[in-house]
């Protein structure tokens, strides 16, 4: 077969385009960007995580700074989430984590309210103050119960 530089160039372009598509699928869509040993891992224990799932974003003031690595029950059977956050963001030790919902039917995420301390959380630390997910059914149940109590 005759050797042509144009053919080699086209093969090169094909492989590049394929690899770029794979990279797009993996990094942008697959969320590989926050994986890796550089991530700072902190823990947070809640009473109720609701629909919170691994890879849900961790945000400070609406800006994503990390994601949930895993959620497991701890020794006291309370759900404990491992947060994988950017180590460049210094989170004060007295910060609090709440499970919030984007929109009415949207996905759940963890929002961090910053504290005032000078010291920042290190790897393996626990966030002391947490606020659990709001479960719509329980909320409605409470409202119905209260309405019933009022009318009596």
């Amino acid at each position: 077969m005759n050797v042509s530089p144009l053919r080699d160039l086209l093969v090169g372009c094909f492989v590049l385009a394929g690899l770029l598509s794979l990279a797009y699928l993996s990094v942008t869509l697959g969320g590989l960007s926050y994986r890796g040993p550089g991530g700072l891992q902190i823990h947070a224990t809640f009473d109720e995580v609701g629909g919170l799932k691994p890879r849900a974003p961790v945000v400070i003031g609406g800006v994503k700074v990390g994601q949930i690595k895993s959620i497991q029950l701890d020794g006291d059977l309370r759900p404990r989430a491992v947060l994988d956050v950017d180590p460049a963001v210094g989170i004060p030790v007295d910060s609090s984590a709440s499970i919030l919902t984007s929109g009415v039917l949207g996905d759940q995420y963890i929002g961090i309210e910053l504290g005032a301390e000078e010291d920042v959380l290190k790897g393996g630390d626990e966030i002391q103050y947490t606020q659990s997910a709001v479960i719509l059914e329980r909320l409605i149940g409470k409202v119905v119960q209260n309405l019933g109590a009022d009318s009596e």
Partner: peptide, 13 residues
Amino acid sequence: VISMPLLSALFIT
């Protein structure tokens, strides 16, 4: 074997 994953990624994108 080399082309199939690359073509599949292009198809998906």
